[in-house]
Lab assay of single mutants.
Amino acid sequence: MSIQHFRVALIPFFAAFCLPVFAHPETLVKVKDAEDQLGARVGYIELDLNSGKILESFRPEERFPMMSTFKVLLCGAVLSRVDAGQEQLGRRIHYSQNDLVKYSPVTEKHLTDGMTVRELCSAAITMSDNTAANLLLTTIGGPKELTAFLHNMGDHVTRLDRWEPELNEAIPNDERDTTMPAAMATTLRKLLTGELLTLASRQQLIDWMEADKVAGPLLRSALPAGWFIADKSGAGERGSRGIIAALGPDGKPSRIVVIYTTGSQATMDERNRQIAEIGASLIKHW
């Protein structure tokens, strides 16, 4: 068994979910400061990975656009189908120029040979490839089937209604394609530690997140040497930005962190900087 497989195998399969305990108010002060700096709502939650206990939260039950963070949930649904014998990671999917949508850096290079389901999930999570996400959504039956998958695992909040790139529209008070920080954190924890997926599929999902190549300016920029992070970022219209992550010291994950913001006029660089500063405070007061 590899070190990575050993790491995931040791994560307990508890489903406990406790009331908020504000253990590190310094980080919450930074979250509130980020709201002021961005002129926007910021949602934040931090869960203990083992117990599910809420360590910190701010606007945990307010809706925020999911943006590309939904791609982790999508690949979780795909892996669930693989575990059930309904899908194969090695199955090759062919597509055409007409299937390509905005921001598809991986799929646009494989119009001739197509891509396997495994490769599409990797592209969707590590590079946030939008066409890969749409092709994967098609394999499970579309956005409503992803919502149904989430409902079946106990998440009655998170919903996907549209395809890429329309799902990033982020209209105020529009519940389409949204989640809440508390719901997303709990669902991510179930996918990474629960019995919904096999150990091999849980390991595959966290491996894809660990290999994320487009979230460098966010939490990763604040991470000390030797820390572990597996994450997925998202960006949308109307100043929307977000990240979901499993992270921790000593090379293994010990907490789930979810950060969303929407409604800002700030630049992407400024949104990234504020999320990175929240991450720096989190690590400082770990």
Rank of each mutant, 00 (worst) to 15 (best):
Q4H: 08
H5P: 06
V8S: 15
L10F: 15
L10R: 03
I11M: 13
I11V: 14
F13L: 15
F14L: 07
F14C: 07
L19I: 08
L19G: 15
P20A: 06
P20S: 09
A23G: 15
P25Q: 07
L28W: 13
K30E: 07
A34G: 07
L38S: 08
L38Y: 10
L38R: 05
G39S: 11
V42M: 12
V42S: 02
G43A: 08
G43E: 00
Y44D: 01
E46D: 07
L47Q: 08
L47C: 09
L47R: 02
D48G: 05
G52W: 04
G52S: 08
K53T: 14
K53Q: 13
L55R: 10
E56D: 10
S57W: 11
S57L: 10
S57T: 13
S57E: 12
P60Q: 11
E61D: 15
R63W: 03
R63G: 03
R63D: 02
F64C: 01
P65T: 03
M66V: 12
M66A: 07
M66S: 02
M67S: 12
M67V: 13
F70G: 07
F70I: 05
F70C: 08
A77G: 07
S80Y: 13
S80T: 10
R81V: 05
R81D: 05
V82R: 06
V82W: 06
D83G: 04
D83L: 01
A84S: 11
G85E: 12
Q86R: 13
Q86E: 15
Q86T: 15
E87I: 09
Q88G: 11
Q88N: 15
L89K: 04
L89Q: 05
G90E: 14
R91M: 05
R91L: 04
R92E: 07
I93V: 11
H94A: 09
H94G: 07
H94V: 12
H94S: 07
Y95D: 02
S96C: 13
Q97H: 15
Q97K: 15
Q97L: 13
T107E: 00
T107G: 04
H110R: 09
L111V: 13
G114A: 07
M115K: 02
M115L: 09
M115C: 06
V117C: 03
R118W: 15
A124V: 09
I125L: 10
T126L: 08
M127K: 09
M127V: 08
T131G: 10
A133T: 09
A133S: 12
N134Y: 02
N134R: 03
L135A: 05
L135F: 05
L135Y: 02
L136H: 00
L136S: 01
L137S: 04
L137E: 02
L137K: 01
L137N: 03
K144N: 14
K144G: 14
K144R: 13
E145Q: 15
E145K: 15
T147S: 13
M153I: 15
V157I: 07
R159G: 03
R159A: 05
L160S: 08
W163L: 11
W163Q: 10
W163G: 10
P165S: 08
E166P: 06
E166Y: 14
E166G: 12
E166D: 12
E166S: 12
L167R: 01
N168C: 04
E169R: 10
E169A: 15
P172S: 13
P172I: 15
D174G: 05
E175A: 14
E175Y: 13
R176L: 10
D177G: 02
D177E: 01
T178P: 00
T178C: 07
M180K: 15
P181A: 07
P181G: 03
P181N: 00
A183E: 12
M184V: 08
T187S: 12
T187G: 10
L188E: 00
L188M: 12
R189C: 13
R189G: 13
R189H: 08
R189E: 09
L192F: 11
G194V: 09
L197Q: 04
L197S: 04
A200R: 13
A200P: 15
S201R: 06
R202A: 12
Q204G: 04
L205V: 06
I206R: 12
D207A: 14
M209L: 07
M209I: 00
A211T: 07
D212N: 09
D212S: 07
D212H: 03
D212T: 05
K213P: 04
V214M: 09
V214S: 06
L219Q: 03
R220L: 02
S221P: 10
S221Y: 12
S221M: 10
A222C: 11
A222D: 09
A222G: 11
L223W: 02
L223V: 14
L223I: 14
P224K: 07
P224A: 05
P224V: 03
A225R: 13
F228C: 08
I229E: 01
I229S: 02
K232G: 00
K232T: 00
G234R: 00
G236D: 02
R238D: 07
R238Y: 14
G239M: 01
G239Q: 02
S240H: 06
S240W: 00
S240N: 09
R241L: 02
G242E: 00
I243Y: 07
I243N: 01
I243M: 07
I244E: 00
I244M: 10
A246E: 05
L247P: 00
G248R: 00
P249V: 07
D250Y: 12
D250E: 15
D250G: 13
D250C: 13
D250N: 10
G251L: 11
K252S: 14
K252G: 10
K252I: 11
P253A: 10
S254Y: 12
S254E: 14
I256N: 00
I259F: 08
Y260V: 06
Y260C: 03
Y260D: 00
T262R: 11
T262K: 14
S264N: 05
T267S: 13
T267I: 11
M268R: 06
M268E: 06
M268V: 10
D269G: 12
D269V: 14
N272K: 06
A276G: 10
I278L: 09
G279S: 08
L282P: 00
K284G: 12
K284Q: 12
H285Y: 15
H285L: 10
W286R: 01
W286M: 07
